[in-house]
């Protein structure tokens, strides 16, 4: 079907015999260009994804290291064990807590900054944008280490500030109630910059005439925001919501560096629990089951978000 133009260029019989060869060669060229991606994707994504799925039905562990094919299939046992694993449920609870509080905060603050920077603040606008975006491009580990210093109960800047105004600051990361909020604060602070940049782009796509019309109709600032900005920003908000939720459901580095999942496992996320099972205990079958449960949760949440928030207009 790709042949006709080639056939036409050729003459008579010759063209007919040349046609398929050209097509084959064209295919090959295409595959050659695609090859780097296809090979890398196959080796580093597709194969592990399939292997992990198979592993999740086995008891693959240390004993199988020398002869991986000799591992025993145990059906849904890993999933059943996971269902009654209290530590898994608490890690899932912690992750949901992080998402439910962290995602709205990130989006609302990001949108507020974007709105302020595109309509209100005009001086030093670039400086502000760069400032808010800097944490996004900074290494998460470096940020977590610095925040650990900030939150140090004895010598941290935050508690020193509180002491200066007469408050006795708590041990932020060592307190089971405050540890997760501290981590949420850091994650929100870091990710607000990305939300801001995306929202700024979304805001710029809204035609100025709509704001003029709203002003002529006598709409106030809040009304304009509610009735013009928000509806037109809906696709952008949906995109940010899905992206941020997926990212936050995979919470790992922040608690890994800052609290190690503690205190009392209050900041242990699903991904951290998976890491512990898979690489500290080397229960790779069980860890794969955790990974697939998390995958299904992410897929369901993203699906629901799309279903309920997609603008049909």
């Amino acid at each position: 079907m790709a042949a006709p133009p080639l056939v036409r260029r050729g003459v008579g019989k010759q063209a007919v015999s040349v046609g398929p060869r050209h097509s084959w060669r064209q295919d090959l060229t295409g595959w050659a260009f695609a090859a780097p991606f296809v090979i890398l994707f196959g080796i580093f994504m597709a194969f592990p994804i399939i292997a992990a799925f198979v592993l999740s039905f086995t008891s693959f562990g240390l004993r199988d290291l020398q002869s991986p094919l000799g591992t025993s299939f145990i059906g849904l046992d890993n999933y059943a064990a996971l269902f009654s694993d209290a530590k898994f449920w608490s890690s899932l609870g912690n992750t949901v807590y992080f998402v439910v509080v962290g995602v709205p905060l990130t989006l609302i603050i990001g949108l507020a900054i974007a709105t302020a920077l595109s309509r209100g603040i005009t001086r030093f606008r670039t400086a502000f944008r760069v400032g808010y975006y800097l944490p996004v491009i900074t290494s998460i580990v470096a940020i977590a280490v610095v925040w650990r210093f900030l939150l140090n109960p004895d010598s941290g800047l935050i508690n020193m500030g509180l002491a200066a105004i007469g408050f006795d600051g708590p041990a932020w990361l060592a307190n089971p109630t405050l540890a997760m909020p501290s981590i949420i604060a850091m994650a929100v602070w870091r990710n607000v910059g990305f939300a801001m940049v995306v929202f700024v782009a979304g805001l710029q796509a809204i035609p100025g005439v709509l704001y003029e019309a709203a002003a002529i109709d006598g709409a106030g600032r809040w009304q304009t925001f509610r009735n013009v900005t928000l509806p037109l920003l809906r696709p952008t908000i949906l995109f940010m919501l899905v992206i941020t939720t997926i990212g936050y459901l995979q919470l790992f580095e922040e608690p890994f560096v800052m609290t190690g999942g503690g205190p009392l496992n209050a900041t242990l996320s699903v991904t951290m629990y998976m890491y512990e099972q898979g690489f500290e205990f080397f229960r790779q079958g069980y860890a794969s089951a955790i990974a697939y449960v998390l995958f299904v949760i992410v897929a369901i949440v993203a699906f629901l978000q799309f279903k309920f928030l997609r603008s049909d207009t």
Binding site: P176, L264, E276, E280, F281
Partner: peptide
């Protein structure tokens, strides 16, 4: 034990529930 890393971690978790919790 082959499972020592797991056992130690579980014991540590429980110790913390006692000392801190």
């Amino acid at each position: 034990a082959a499972t020592w890393s797991q056992l130690g971690s579980a014991i540590n978790d429980t110790l913390e529930q006692m000392t801190v919790g």
